[in-house]
Design a protein around this nucleic acid. Structure first.
Lengths: 343, 343
DNA sequence: AAGAAATGTGGTTACGTTTTCACATCGCCG
DNA sequence: CGGCGATGTGAAAACGTAACCACATTTCTT
């Protein structure tokens, strides 16, 4: 069953007593046409309810005004807020978005990349899956002229435009803050170090701990997945330590959730028994009792920069052919009531 | 700057020493072709890396294999999980999705509807905005043969296919449960009664209260918006009541968050001082201390039914022309530890 | 005033695909 | 052996649009 275009540019031309060429020019505001004919065309378009066929347009090589967004996980608030911010920014540029969720799966990710190319999107916002590596295919797409902007995670330095949070400084800052409150044993629950987000945050923690001369006990560092489950288990382990840490930093919002739950169950009072800092500020952290201090990633600014980057490439000529640009967005520590002064 | 198709069906035909017609037949598995030529074609496709042009295909009237999803709010977990479930289900049918967020705004909503039609999507999953009404335009799209499935909210009975939660029973059930624990003064914080979700939940509350002969004090009912803010204010008001309720039902996840926050700040112990039931089960409710009992909407099943409905329409003939179907999904009360027995 | 440039218009083609249509060739039956 | 359905193929015509070209007409330059 296929629906046909009920009214075409030819119908409009007939109704206006003009040629399709003129109608096209008016509609695209390209080339010359008289004000009088513009009126005729606009009137005919209005009364016939004409809508240009998108397929025909893009077949002729016009931009599709559609971009792809590939994220690994739609159940993660971070990615949905990022998606929302991108969507809002792209909307004002009159772009629409095909949403793809690769579930951290390289095969699915590849399917999406190919599909997006085939559908002729003008560009892709891309967060690569944690497992597997499609950089060969990504290279091909880029070589064929498809602009891709990496979001949040970076697979390879200076190959694609990228907008990344300053993971290193984010955790560094959190550790500094806790140290300034007198904490010397600070636990850190890290996500996987195989992707930049995990790796850089981990480095930030280690660097800060050494720089400030804090307790460098390896038992305080729990490396695992970016999951609530890991957050739960790692927290339980940290609490079970003979000399447990006085403060704890969670490496992601998922991890924060797990950590907070376990501490609630264990009747650990925050901040009296344990100071806590979350990563990726989310709404429910502010609703928590007490409200949780967190490292905030400026998602709106990430979106703005990513959109700028992609838009520059896609609208071509001017700055479209430059070297890849990487933005590192500074994070900020939002201080609430989950950390206390000690010692 | 426009990118061109680097390898077309003609190139494949040349490479295989055949005509484009034959290649097309092989690729679409339509009409007659020999096994020998099929091999040639497949080989040529492989070695040239040919990908059919989506624009050209859909220009010829082929389904675009893209659907639209219009939701009012991407920062609401309910809609993102719904979107995720739809996405996963559509993926196995080889459909992709354009994500549209109307921000509860009728003008934006209209833009999206028109855009989706123009882009030639095969169907739309639709949650109408709370404010304004585009049903005239929706009617036009439907009349022009575009299948639309309403999600979660329904504007008009039996006009479109719709998949709705059984809001009435959901709240009814929650009230029954609280009554069975001995509660007689139960507060209900309702969202806007101008959309079905709010209206039906409200009716469910009122009906249950009367049926069970509970306290029918109008002060226990707080009607407002589906926002955290309303949840906060309404909860504060309920707590300030001379004889405050012993239990509280929140009309949405946003409202739940506001309610829980205010109660935390007011040092109300759950469930000792107040029993609480949330609406729309979300992950953070399970992480709360104590874990919050909630009315759960079967989002996965909603998605499955919606996909079935849309797929039936879009794949045409068989059941595509029937009367609109409305599914009401039964909700379930997930009992955790936020309600206690009294009296 | 004459040529060049700017303004305006319509016919035609091309984008890449699917779908007729016409034409073969084969096997089979009466 | 004539005919006929089944099988296989390619040439050509769409689908709706924008770009290109050819041609007018006007307006600006020297």
């Amino acid at each position: 069953m296929r629906r046909k275009q009920e009214v075409t540019i030819v119908d409009v031309a007939m109704a206006a007593g003009l040629s399709p060429s003129t109608v096209s020019r008016v509609l695209n505001q390209k080339g010359y046409y008289s004000a009088e004919n513009e009126q005729k065309v606009r009137h005919a378009v209005e009364s016939l309810g004409y809508r240009p066929s998108w397929s025909a347009r893009s077949l002729k090589g016009a931009p599709t005004r559609v971009v792809g967004l590939i994220i690994p996980d739609i159940s993660n608030v971070f990615y949905t807020t990022l998606a929302g911010a991108l969507l809002a920014r792209m909307r004002v540029l009159d772009y629409d978005m095909i949403l793809c969720v690769n579930d951290e799966n390289a095969q699915l990710d590849l399917n999406y990349l190919e599909m997006l190319q085939q559908k002729g999107v003008d560009g892709i916002f891309y967060t690569h899956p944690a497992h597997g590596n499609n950089s060969v295919h990504v290279r091909r797409l880029v070589a064929e002229g498809l602009p891709i902007v990496e979001l949040n995670r970076q697979r390879e330095k200076n190959f694609l435009d990228a907008v990344l949070p300053d993971n290193f400084r984010g955790v560094h800052q959190a550790v500094e803050y806790l140290a300034s409150l007198g904490h010397r044993r600070i636990g850190f629950i890290s996500g996987s170090a195989e992707i930049t987000t995990g790796h850089e945050r981990l480095l930030g923690y280690q660097s800060a701990v050494r720089l400030l001369g804090l307790d460098d006990d390896p038992a305080l560092l729990k490396i695992g997945a970016f999951t609530r489950q890991h957050g739960e288990q790692a927290t339980a382990e940290l609490l079970a330590l003979p000399n447990r840490p006085t403060a704890l930093i969670a490496g992601s919002n998922r991890i924060s959730m797990g950590a907070l739950m376990v501490m609630g169950q264990a009747a650990i009072r925050i901040p009296d028994d344990m100071s806590v800092i979350g990563y990726n500020d989310t709404e429910w952290l502010t609703a928590w009792n007490p409200p949780i201090t967190a490292v905030d990633i400026a998602v709106d600014e990430m979106a703005q920069l990513a959109v700028d980057l992609l838009h520059r490439r896609v609208s071509g000529g001017n700055g479209g052919d430059g070297k890849p640009v990487t933005y590192h967005l500074s994070t900020s520590l939002i201080i609430r009531q989950s950390c206390r002064k000690i010692g």
